[in-house]
């Protein structure tokens, strides 16, 4: 294996980590503040991908499609919160898991009715086609590079929002002490809806960016969702910092494992054995990592304060 390939796969890992982070940020905030386990978070990712594809086809522009899909996903998220999830905040986790599981069934089937069960494809917009040169002699797809840039920018914006604004102050306070926030006279319902909408928009953003590189189909949300769970379990539930670290680690381990575990194994065991074991082991890698992290730190790497 050569250095250029390693660099390319590392960037792919980072790119995947960015997508995971966009998902994990919303999920971990919603859990940290509303104490809600939302399995349907993956559905919002899927909704974002489908809406962006549909809007892009209708308008003929990827950018316009993305710009329209973002607020639309936010609205879907707000609607879900107001109609179904609001009543679940006071329920136990089991109820939340089951009810949002019901939401997933609903959304997957709704998408299947509207767009069919087969995967649909979007192409990379022309202005993001081609490659950029990250190092002399190392080209990297512009679109994937753009995802990394957008993701890092969003992470910085989110950090600024949480640490520098009044809304962010309330979000932080809400994560550590809910009763105090309501005692401040803040409209807690509105805060919850806002946070949920924000999380939905971030998931939608991840979904619409995923369109041109992964297949867009019903159930796409759950595949990433379970990996996002691994991210926030490793990072510590409720912690944005943990989400960043967890997302990058999981993105890297998963991508590099898929790329290099097989060639690596073939140096240790016979080639056919590596052929067989490599892919399976690669897809299990992040779960093994999670088990290892939890064995030493049952509350993840960055446990949120005031929670057991």
């Amino acid at each position: 294996m050569n250095a250029a390939l390693v660099l390319e796969q590392t960037l792919n890992g980072l790119q995947y980590g960015v997508m995971l982070f966009l998902m994990a940020a919303g999920l971990t905030l919603v859990f940290g503040i509303m104490n809600l386990v939302n399995l349907a978070h993956g559905s919002l990712y899927m909704v974002g991908a489908y809406l962006a594809t549909a809007f892009a086809r209708w308008s003929g522009s990827f950018v316009l499609g993305a710009v329209l899909a973002l607020p639309a996903t936010l609205l879907v998220g707000v609607a879900v919160e107001v109609i179904a999830l609001r009543t679940l905040y006071e329920r136990d986790h089991l109820d939340q898991v089951l009810a949002t599981f019901g939401l997933i069934l609903f959304f997957n089937e709704l998408i299947a009715i509207l767009w069919g069960r087969a995967a649909i494809y979007t192409s990379v917009p022309p202005f993001l086609g081609g490659h950029v040169r990250v190092l002399p002699g190392v080209p990297y797809p512009t679109y994937r590079a753009a995802i990394i840039v957008v993701g890092v920018a969003v992470a910085i914006l989110l950090w600024a929002l949480v640490t520098r604004t009044r809304l962010g102050m309330l979000i932080r306070a809400g994560a550590s002490n809910r009763t105090m926030v309501s005692a401040l006279g803040v409209n807690i319902r509105l805060l919850y809806t806002l946070v949920f909408g924000l999380g939905a928009a971030l998931a939608g953003l991840a979904g619409l960016m995923a369109g041109p590189i992964y297949s867009v189909q019903p159930g796409m949300g759950e595949e990433i969702l379970i990996q996002v769970f691994v991210v926030i379990v490793i990072g510590g539930i409720g912690s944005i910092r943990g989400a960043v670290v967890g997302a990058v680690v999981v993105g890297m381990v998963d991508t590099l494992g898929r790329a290099f575990l097989k060639p690596f194994l073939s140096t240790v065991v016979s080639a056919p054995a590596a052929d067989k074991a490599g892919p399976a082991l690669a897809s299990m890698l992040i779960y093994l990592l999670m088990a290892a992290v939890l064995f030493f730190r049952p509350e993840g790497l960055f446990p949120a304060r005031g929670r057991s």
Partner: peptide, 18 residues
Amino acid sequence: IRTSGVYFIMITLAFAQM
């Protein structure tokens, strides 16, 4: 079982996925 609450839910899910 060393963990609890939502961790437990997610870990059992992740192991099954593995």
